[in-house]
């Protein structure tokens, strides 16, 4: 499902919701704005997030775009996704 009209905040919320449902323990939810690395999101978990992005927003983030600036936290990733969706719409 593609959601081109979503804002950065909405996309970030969706990412955080996914991470808290599938990756983080219920007693240690990821807070918006917290860096993935600080929350303990490792490379396997990052792959799960990329799969979520693919399933939800219809594209795979290529390796060359997986820069620290893009995968720092949910907001950074959401900003990238929103820009990508806007460029395709």
């Amino acid at each position: 499902m593609t959601a081109p009209t979503q804002t950065t905040v909405e996309i970030a919320d969706a990412i955080v919701e996914f991470i808290n449902a599938e990756i983080m323990a219920s007693s240690s939810p990821l807070q918006p704005g917290i860096a993935f690395e600080d929350a303990g999101v490792d490379s396997m978990a990052l792959m799960k997030i990329l799969l979520f992005v693919e399933t939800t927003y219809g594209f795979w983030i290529p390796d060359e775009d997986l820069t620290p600036a893009v995968i720092a936290d949910a907001t950074c990733m959401a900003r990238y996704i929103e820009a990508h969706l806007r460029s395709k719409s």
Partner: peptide, 11 residues
């Protein structure tokens, strides 16, 4: 071997 535990608490 892949660890399938959730993150953030001892578990």
């Amino acid at each position: 071997s892949v660890d399938l535990r959730k993150k953030g608490e001892p578990g």
